[in-house]
């Protein structure tokens, strides 16, 4: 069976995978009840906040900066899940190369990040417009700027996800391999890379604040493309290294 025939089905299966096993899944009415309750709380808080004082609604976009961390976390969880649930033997004996095995989980994690990113964008966007409408006066150009800034933030956060995800893969695989002693080292390198990236981030991204409209806006340097490109190449290399470790150095 050619590899290409099982790669995408594998991505789909990794994408659909649920964090909690179905044993503890709630029944449908309960889930709906919780969804309604959470929505009500959020809408209530937003309404209260915007009526009582000026909330800096643009700051809500910072929430999407959690996306790389979500990528990191879900990547770790999706691999760990095979070990924890005792399915690792099935997973590893699939007739597909280690690189493809990991790439499928990687791609699935990125899809999930895109999905969550879009969801967050919609929720924050709607809440933001709602707040603006409550606080009034409502300017379409301000609203447009707000939504555009949101797009920039979300894209930026998503673009950082591959590196975080690849790093998570390497991290979780290293932990169950002979290179386990290198795990703290991997952490140090990871933190160092983030630190360098953030210390230099002002060269690529400038945030500004417009007092009149209470809007945070973003100025993106064209050089940012190089930074992101570098992070993607690094992500690819990390996945390759992780696949190599998975192939040669597992402690099963």
């Amino acid at each position: 069976m050619p590899v290409k025939h099982i790669f995408w089905p594998l991505v789909r299966q990794d994408f659909k995978w649920q964090h909690k096993s179905d044993r503890v899944r709630m029944s449908r009415p309960w889930r709906i009840a919780y969804a309604i309750a959470i929505t009500m709380v959020i809408v209530g808080l937003t309404t209260y906040g915007s009526l009582v004082g000026h909330t800096l609604i643009s700051a809500a976009w910072y929430i999407v900066l959690s996306l790389p961390w979500i990528a990191f976390g879900t990547s770790i969880a999706s691999v760990k899940h095979e070990w924890k649930n005792g399915t690792v033997g099935w997973w590893l004996s699939l007739p597909i190369s280690r690189l493809q095995l990991l790439t499928s989980k990687f791609v699935a994690a990125l899809f999930r990040v895109v999905l969550i990113g879009c969801g967050l964008y919609c929720v924050i966007g709607v809440l933001g417009l709602y707040t603006m409408a409550l606080q009034g006066p409502f300017h379409t150009d301000v609203a447009g700027q707000f939504l555009l800034t949101g797009v920039q933030w979300v894209m930026l956060a998503m673009a950082a996800a591959p590196f975080a995800s690849a790093f998570g893969m390497l991290f979780v695989i290293a932990r169950s391999s002979k290179v386990r002693p290198a795990v703290p080292l991997i952490w140090i390198i990871f933190v160092a890379i983030w630190w360098v990236a953030f210390s230099q981030i002002s060269r690529f991204i400038q945030t500004g604040y417009r007092r009149d409209t209470h809007a945070l806006y973003l100025n993106l340097s064209p050089n940012l493309v190089y930074l992101l490109l570098a992070s993607w190449i690094l992500a690819y290399l990390l996945i390759r290294v992780a696949a190599r470790v998975l192939d040669r150095h597992l402690t099963l």
Binding site: M1, Q18, S21, D22, R23, N85, G86, T87, V88, G89, W90, S93, L94, P95, I96, S97, R98
Partner: peptide, 20 residues
Amino acid sequence: GWRTNCDIAYLPDRARWYAN
């Protein structure tokens, strides 16, 4: 290697199946 696994049906030790 993974290529020869096309020819092998393998039940791993202490294996479980996907609960869902």
